[in-house]
Amino acid sequence: MSVATAPVRDSPLARRNPTVKLAVLFVASVALLFVLDPVTPSIVYLVGLIGVTVGGRLPLRAVLTAQLPFLAFALGVFSINVLSRPGTVLWQEGPLRVTVEGLVVGAALAARTLAIGILSIGYVLTTDSLALMTSLHQNARLGARPSYALMAGYRLLQQLPGEWAAIRAAQAVRAPLRRDGTVRRGAASFGRAAFALLVLAIRRGERMAQSLESRGLGLQPRTVWHPVRIGPIDAVFGVAVVTGLGILIAAAGLSGLLSGPGALF
C-alpha cells in the first residue's frame, strides 16, 4: 500500500509516458515467459536493476526492499522444481530428491521471477497512478467512464486501510473478551470484517457513480486536466528497450545459452 501512495520523484524514467511504459513492461514479461535457461533472465535482471536504479534515480535500498515478495515467490518456485522434477539424481534422502534438471529449471524460473520483478518495481516506483489513468484515457483510448471509475477506485483503495481499521475497532468494542481483558479474535471475525468492508465499498461505489454522473461525466466534448502526451523520447524509449531485449535473447540463442519451453518436458 505504501508503494502506491508514495509520491513519485522526478527522473528520466518517471517522465516517460505511463502507457508506453506499461506496454514495454508487458511485452518484456511475455517474452521472458518463453525463456527457460538461468543465464538469460539473470542478465535481464542485472541490466534491469541498473536501468531502474539509474534511470529512476531510486535508492538501491528501496529497490531491494521492494523486491522481497518477489524473492519469496522465486524461492518457492525454485524449491518446488528442485524437489519434484524427475531426472538425473544428484542427491537423495528418503522421499527428498534433488535432480540436475530440477536445479536448472528451478534456477531459470527463479531468475525469471526476479527479472520480471525488477521491471515491475521500476514501473510501480516511477509511475504516478493518476497520470497512468489519464494516459490510458488519452493515449490508449480507454473510455471516459471506465477511466474515471478506475480513478475513483484508486481513491477508494487509499481509504480502505482506514475503513478496515475502523471496522475492526468497531467489532472489537462488541467482541467477547478473554479473562485478561484482550479481545478474542479468530478467522470468523476476519471474514465478518471483510464482508462489512465489501458492503461499505459497494455502497460508496454507487454513490460515487451517481456523483460522477451528476457532474456530467460522459458528456462530449471532454477536456483533460494535466494532459499526458507521447513524445519522441517515449517512442525511442519503447523501441530501445524492446530491441535491446530482442538482441539479448538473440545473442543468448546464438551462443547456445538459451533454452525454450522444451526444457520443461
Binding site: 506499461l22 521471477t113 515491475s120 514501473y123
Partner: peptide
Amino acid sequence: VFLGSAVGPL
C-alpha cells in the same frame, strides 16, 4: 499497478 503484486504484469 497499485499494490505491486509479486506476479507482475503476467
